[in-house]
Every structure is written in C-alpha cells, then in structure tokens.
Design a protein around this nucleic acid. Structure first.
Lengths: 202, 202, 202, 202
DNA sequence: GGTTAACCGAGACGGTACGTCATGTCTTGCA
DNA sequence: TGCAAGACATGACGTACCGTCTCGGTTAACC
C-alpha cells in the first residue's frame, strides 16, 4: 500500500511558494530547462515536499497554471452578450490574440502544452479542470446566438469552437503565421459564414 | 571561429543508422525517455558523431522525420483531382485521420511537435522543409477548385488550410476528441460552406 | 562561495567501499587504467559521492593508502631496540625490502608516487600524514643509537634517513637494480660507516 | 604480420616538430594534461604520424627528453678530474642541484619519471639509453679516485652512485626537502666518509 | 620521366571516461 | 509528523581524447 500524505497537514505557504517559483522559472528559463531542484531552491522548500504532493513535473506546471487562472476572472465570468454575436466574438477573439502575445503567458502555456501532448492523463485533467469550463462559457454565448437566429440551430458547438479557435491556437503554437486583430476578425467572419443558418445571408 | 566538420567526409551509413535508431526509439520508449546515448548505442555509433552533425535532440528528431517523409510518396505526389473538390478533400482528410491513428507515426509526430513548440528555429525549419511543401500541394488542389467555381475565387488559401486542418490537428494533439472518418467528412462540409462562392448553395 | 558538503551526513559505508574498491582496482588493473567510474561501479556508489568528498583521483588513492596504513601496526609501533643498532636496522631494512616485493603493495605505492610527483599539494599531505610519522619512529631509534655512542652525536637525522632509505627506494621505483636482503645489509653497513662517531671504527 | 613503416621515408621535419611540441606542452600544461592530440596540433602533424613512429605517450616523452640530452654536452663530456675527488664531486653535485631547479627541465623530468615508474619496458630503455651512459662517466671519475687512494679500492661503484645521488633525487622527486648547494656538499662529505679507504681519515 | 608505393596533414569514426547535473528516494534534525 | 536540508544511487549530459581508419596531396625511389 502506498503511503498517502495527510492533506490536512499540508503547508499552504509551501504550496504557494512552489507554484509561484514554478511560474517564475518557466518564464525565466523556459520549459526545457525547468527543474524540480530549481523550483525547490527558489521556493525555499525541500524537494521531498514537491514529490509528496505532485506526481510529476507536468502536474506542478498544471497546478501552477491552474492557480494562475483561478485568481483571474476568466473561469467565472461569462462572455459578453450585446445581442450581436459577431461583435461579441470579435471582441473575445481579439482578447485571446492579445493574451497569447503577453510574454508572461507564453512560457507557461507552452510548457503546459508540451506536457499535455505527451501525457494523456494530464491532457484529461486539463480538459476537465481548465478547457471544459472555459468552453462551456463560450458555448453559452453561442446558444444565445442560436436562439437569436444568428447561428444554425443544429450546429455542433464543439465543432464550432474548434473552427473558431483551432486555427488561432495552431498559429500560435507552431508559429506558423502572425497573430493580429485582423486575423481574429477574419476567423469570426469565416466562422459565421460556415455556421449561419441555411437560407440566410450575412 | 567555430570549427565546422567537413561534410564530404560524412559517413552516410552512420547518418542512416542514427535516424533509423531515433525513429525506432521514439516509437518504443516515447519522446520523454529518448536519449542521445540510447540513439548512439542503438545505431552503433559514437555520441560525438551525433553531436558533430546535429545541434540538438530536436534536430535529430526533425531529420529522422524528414528522412521518413522523403522516402514516402507524400511530398512529391499531388492531391487527387477528380473534378469534385468535396470528394477529393474527404478522401484526403480521411487519409490524414488514418495516418494519425497509426501508432508508428504517433510517437515521432508528437516528439517533433514537442520540440517545435519550444524551439522557434526548429519551427521555422519545419515550416520550410516539411509543412510548406505539403501545404503547397494542397493549395494547388484548392486553386483548381477555385477555377472550377467550387470555391470562392478570392479565398485566402492559407486560412483555408487552417480552417480545414487545424481542428483535426488540435483534436489529435491535445486528445480533445475522437478522430473518426465522419469527423473528417464534417470538417470538409463545414469548410466548403465557409469557403463556397457567394450566391451559391451546396 | 563554494558549497561545502556537511561531513556529519557522510556515509561511512560508502567511504569504506570506495577506498577498498580503489585499492583493489589499482592492484588489478594498475594505476594507468584506474578510473573514477570503475571505482564507483565496484564500490556500488554514485560517481558524485566520490567527487563530493575527494578533489582528485590522487586524493582518493592517497586516502585509500592512508586507510590501509591506519589499520596496520606500522604507524603506532616503534622500531625494535635490542641495543645494537646494526642488528635492528638490518631487520627493519630487510622488512622494507620484503614489503616492496609484495605484489599487493606494489600497485598502490606506485600509484601514490605517480600522483605525488605531479601534485605538490598531495606531496605535502603525504609527508605530513604518512612519511613524517614513520620517519619520526625511525629517528627515535637513531637517537637511541646516538645515546649509545653507536652513531655520531651531531648527525643530521633527516640526512641519515635519506642515506639509508633513498637508495633502496630509488632502486625499487626506477627498477634500477635488484632488491635483496643482502642489499639491505650492505646499505646498513655503509650507513653506519658514514654515520659512526669520529675516532671510532666499525 | 604487422606492417612496419619504412624509416628511410621518415620526415625529419615532422619528428623534430613533434618532439619540440611535446617538450613545450609538458612545460606549459604539465604531464597530466599532456595529450597526443595537442602534440599533433601544436606540431602541425597528423595524429597518425605520431602513432606510426612511437608506441606510447611515454615513448614520445622519452624521445623528447633524449633529443634534449643529445644536443647538450652531458652525454659526451666526462666529469672534471682535478685530482681531488671531493672538489670535483661537489662541483658536479652542485650542478645537478642547479639543473633540477631549472623550470624548463622540471616538467619533462617529472613526466619522464611518471612514465618510467609505471612502465618497466620504458624503465629499461631509460637505463640503457640515458642513465647507464651518464653513470659510466661518473664511475670513470670514481675509478680514478680509487687509483688515487681517495676511495676504497673495493667499493661497489653502483652502490656508490646510489649513495651519492639517490638522496638528492628523492628530495627533488618527492619535494621532501630543500635542494641547496650546501646540501650537495654535505652529501659528498657523507659519501666520502662512507667510501674512504679503511685506516684513513678525511 | 613516369609510375607507384609510402608518408604526410587532416579529421571522421566507434569508443571510454570525464566531471556535472538532475532525478527520485532516503535520512536527519528542527518546529 | 510535516518540513528544509541535503546525501545518496542512478543515469544522461555534452566534451575531451583515445587509437584506428580513410581521404587527397605530396614525395621519393625504382623502373
């Protein structure tokens, strides 16, 4: 039987120090050179404390990212709904473009993706804790658009989100093209053309 | 001045052995556990021979992948052109889905992506040597469709490819959903709806 | 500031295993082919554990030799004193000749000398920890002989020891001649002739 | 059958360059860090040219030292013979002390000794080519002293040389004491006392 | 005087060992 | 008992040299 640590004894101070140190180091030295030892040293923590509470480096990175998101407004806040889906989506997509350009985010997100690509378990956790809640907020806005007759009523919303976000995400991840506000707008235009109700013109 | 090895003296036998060993090991043990030492041992080669000709582990993986592609028919062969773009694209997308499901490809592609995400230089090389030629073949087929009036004449073909492939690629990379032939068909349907000429119905 | 390991945490088990392995390997493969890796492997120890506590291969060899001497009786035991310095010195010199002929000693002593020749710091340590205590024991016997009127009262005892031992040592080190009990006796004879009190005949 | 190189084709220019480079490098970086590659690079010579003509690093060092001695006057010149052996020996011993203090000699001699200690074959070659001729010259002077009645007629001259030189050599090799002209004189005094004819006083 | 075999500088090769770094486990002593 | 500290066995890193092996280019002896 594997010995499990007792979570009630867990030091919150150490936990925060570790996650903060992890974030800082990812930004400073990049994912490839990120080490458990450096995190422990920076956090003023014993290595064992990291190994006790996280199962892998990916898990630490994941939690570091999760903690970042929890403090932010994203997870809780719904998308804007002015009644015009085009306006709202363009605003959201432009915001996403801006976020990807933020150097403070770049390191951690790339690190997280690197881990997710090679770790199915982490990928599942990522979907459940991070991606799905965010996606649900977006789907809520799209359902509103469906009710308003701005989107096909029978549209597959998972596919819709992929259509909208995957090109943007891919450009950023593989650096295969520039991320500009215009590009965000164009994606929304194409998306709406693909998803508009039949018999309707933009 | 950095000393450069003389390429004319390079052992082709060693080069092939290294690339083959790299491919085999990625499939067998995965990217995370791939080591230069193991590649050298498997290839029956000194470590220095790897370090002499490749600047990083990513560069080896890239070349291993490149060599694989060069032997295959992909780079040289154009896409099918039956006259019906929908038929042709669905065939191509289904083939892509099948390729992603091939366990022999899975390891190397994930490894390559892992390196590319964190190495801009490698990403550029990847675009130039691998992605761009493949994209050009696809664009050729799309231009044919434009001439046939099946696609908007003013469509941005880079965007078109992203629209078509990015959702598929993202699902595979992040394991965010199942990759089925039906999904391939659906992507083509949505793509054609978004890209069809104005005033036209599918 | 250089980080210093904490000696109180040192594993005595590892220390002994390393020194023993070093001695064994010197005897088996000789000094020239002695490697840190082989010592670590033989001792069942990580290389870092060697590098943590010893600054050079020579330092390990020195300690291995020192540990050997500490367990033996040599350092603590005084020379025999029968009252006749000739008898006593011949016994000691013959014992030294026998010791040099012991194949178990040959390897380590040659290795130690090799390091000492090229490393002044090690040479100083050697004098302080090994040579000086042994020399002192010998000088004690010579002082006794001086009191007994068998040796010149004003003889330089450092020089005396050199006169007695250096020829023997040199023959062994450079293999410039045979080491026999007769040779030992002859050296004592010559030594006593050179060092006897003035006005006295042997 | 092992292929033997043809000595008539040997490049004298390369041979000299190698020996010179070896000497320089020993003085500059010391014996421990002396490498064949560095010698070849310094000499502007292919590594194979060294391996073709010398069987080991020790052999190169030996030849480098030998070449040095051949250019000097030592091997050919006999010792001075003023008729007074004490005067002559003190002059020779003082010269030896001075030589050992010459930094240009220090490196190569230590290197040579290091190799000789661990390589019996090289030791034999050293005796034959270098030590024996030098010793013979010294013995010639001692024989002259015997004829003059300044030394015991039945003295063992090999032992005599050891008595005279081994203490000096040992002090230098192991750095066990200072090498001064006074020390040289003292050694000669003691030597003469040990070796003088019976019934005689200095 | 043309041929040809050997040496030459150069340096790639398969290896071994280096000394360093990070891993994940374990132990010690403090709070 | 959780923790900071850090020693430990393990093993990969990237580098330095080893001694062997081609590769062209002289170079010198022999036809």
């Amino acid at each position: 039987m594997v010995k499990q640590p007792n979570p009630t004894r867990r030091s919150e101070r150490s936990r925060q120090a570790i996650l903060t140190a992890a974030r800082e180091l990812i930004s400073e030295v990049g994912y490839a050179k990120l080490t458990i030892e450096a995190i422990a040293a920076r956090a003023g923590v014993g290595k064992q404390t990291i190994y006790r509470w996280w199962s892998s480096k990916g898990a630490v990175i994941f939690d570091a990212f999760l903690a970042l998101s929890e403090t932010g407004p994203e997870l809780s806040t719904a998308l804007p709904d002015t009644g015009d889906v085009e306006t709202d989506l363009k605003a959201v997509m432009r915001a996403t473009v801006a976020e990807f350009a933020d150097p403070a985010f770049e390191g951690p997100i790339r690190a997280l993706n690197t881990e997710i690509i090679n770790d199915p378990a982490l990928a599942a956790q990522y979907r459940e804790k991070l991606a799905d809640p965010l996606d649900e907020a977006k789907k809520t806005r799209l359902r509103s658009a469906q009710r308003a007759g701005q989107l096909a009523a029978d549209a597959d919303l998972d596919l819709a989100l992929e259509l909208l976000y995957a090109p943007l995400y891919q450009r950023w991840l593989l650096r295969s093209g520039p991320l500009t506000p215009q590009y965000a707008d164009t994606l929304v235009d194409v998306f709406l053309k693909a998803m508009r109700p039949e018999g309707r013109r933009s």
